[in-house]
Amino acid sequence: MVKPSNSHAILQMVLHWTLAAAILFLFVSSWWMLSLPLPSDDHTYRVVPFQLHKNIGITLLLIILVMICLRWVRRLQQNAAARSALQTLADIDQWLIYALVAACCSSGYLSSSYSGWNTEFWWLIQLPAWARENDGLNILFSDLHQWSCWLLLLAIVLHIAAAIYHGLRDDALLPKMFP
């Protein structure tokens, strides 16, 4: 059994699985919540799901920043050993997922900012309005949010396929990311 060598590795694992559960929940819930009635004074069905969506999204952005820092620190600690093509591909997939999560979360937040809706982070901290209401920019960032999320879903499917491939090969790679 391969045990995490340091607290960085444990933290990386905890963040990885939190990220995985949160991203899948965000996908499922966003497909559903867009079928709710459009917001108005009377129909407030979207308020809680959208606020929760934003809360989780902003939290994921913070998690991704921590994960990037951890990965960077670990990389500095590792020897610059030669990497196989498969390892390089795995690295690319990993960085692609980080970049796409960051793009999804930031475009979603910017879209929300330009829509004129307030963001109260976990119903505790009122985030300042970064921008004035602007329909054109709201639609632009909303489109970016949508497309980056579809690309993220594709990258996640590849990531899952790779994990199952390594698991079925039993090549001792999987235990490194499974606590």
């Binding site: 390594h166 698991g167 079925l168 039993d170 999987l174 235990p175 499974f178």
Partner: peptide
């Protein structure tokens, strides 16, 4: 049967 492969599928 690969326990690791089955574990990955369970987690998914």
């Amino acid at each position: 049967v690969s326990g690791a492969g089955f574990g990955a599928i369970i987690v998914l």
